[in-house]
């Protein structure tokens, strides 16, 4: 059990990233706040043994709470429709059939955030969370596997699918831009 002071320190340090993570999973402001509060309430009674960082431990609690709330198992499709889109970019020999295009110049932060927002909404929750934990929170692969409860190989598949779809989606927007 953590001391009240340690809980307060954890709130100060981690509530912001957890809140953004819950919002990023598509929950409303009110739901995200409730999920973060429940996460810290669970921490009060949990046994944190220091096998991961406290932040990774909290991400794990939050992720399970998000799944419960959504009542989705977060199952991954054996064949993902995005895989075909990726394959269509190449000739059978593995050469580029349609080489990558854009962005011509770096977008500013607000513009980039707006562009990717819609693309992220279309991702399945587990792919989105794998991508978010790696790219936004910059968690180590082992920590992401721990949070999502997946193997290292499965994580690579999740990240491949997330990045391949997001890249394809953004490329369409870059070309129009």
């Amino acid at each position: 059990m953590l001391e009240p002071q340690a809980i307060a320190a954890a709130v100060r340090e981690h509530s912001g990233v957890l809140f953004r993570a819950a919002l990023g999973q598509g929950f409303s402001d009110a739901d995200a706040e409730e999920l973060v509060q429940e996460t810290f309430a669970t921490l009060l009674s949990a046994r944190f043994e220091g096998r991961s960082t406290l932040r990774t431990f909290l991400f794990g609690i939050l992720y399970r709470k998000c799944l419960e709330r959504r009542r989705e198992a977060g199952r991954e499709l054996a064949v993902d429709p995005g895989d075909e889109v990726f394959e269509s970019r190449f000739h059978t020999g593995g050469h580029w059939a349609k080489p990558p295009r854009g962005p011509e110049q770096d977008a500013d932060a607000a513009e980039a955030a707006a562009l990717i927002s819609d693309c992220l909404k279309a991702l399945p929750p587990q792919q989105k969370e794998a991508f978010r934990l790696r790219e936004v929170d910059q968690e180590e692969s082992a920590a992401v596997c721990n949070v999502l409860g997946v193997s290292d190989t499965h994580l690579r598949v999740l990240l491949f699918r997330a990045r391949a779809k997001l890249r394809e989606c953004l490329e369409g927007k870059w070309k129009r831009g």
Binding site: G24, A107, A112, A113, L115, I116, E135, V136, L170
Partner: peptide
């Protein structure tokens, strides 16, 4: 993509 995700 990575930079855009952080900004988002």
């Amino acid at each position: 993509l990575s930079a855009a995700a952080r900004a988002w």
